[in-house]
Amino acid sequence: MIKTFTPNDVIRYVYKETSAEENKLIAYTLLTDTDLRTFYEEILGIKQEISKIMREPSDKVLGQILTYSREFQTNRP
């Protein structure tokens, strides 16, 4: 029986949450279903762009957090 994959399945595939068996079937479907392949390529591209977004907090705030932790320990009864 041929399994039909949905965009939700493609999202699970892009985020590596599909089983090995599903991977094979989805990869095959992407070769033959151009709409799903287009969706896959676009979603994968956006996922990769999002993955590059990262901001760093200042050293000052990190220092305050670590100081709070040390003092919490010191002040414990």
């Binding site: 907090p57 200042s58 705030v61 305050q64 957090i65 709070y68 932790s69 919490f72 320990q73 414990r76």
Partner: peptide
């Protein structure tokens, strides 16, 4: 940054 500090304070309190 304020909320990051609050987040870790909550974590510290919970863990300790």
């Amino acid at each position: 940054e304020d909320l990051l500090q609050d987040t870790f304070i909550k974590a510290i309190t919970t863990i300790k």
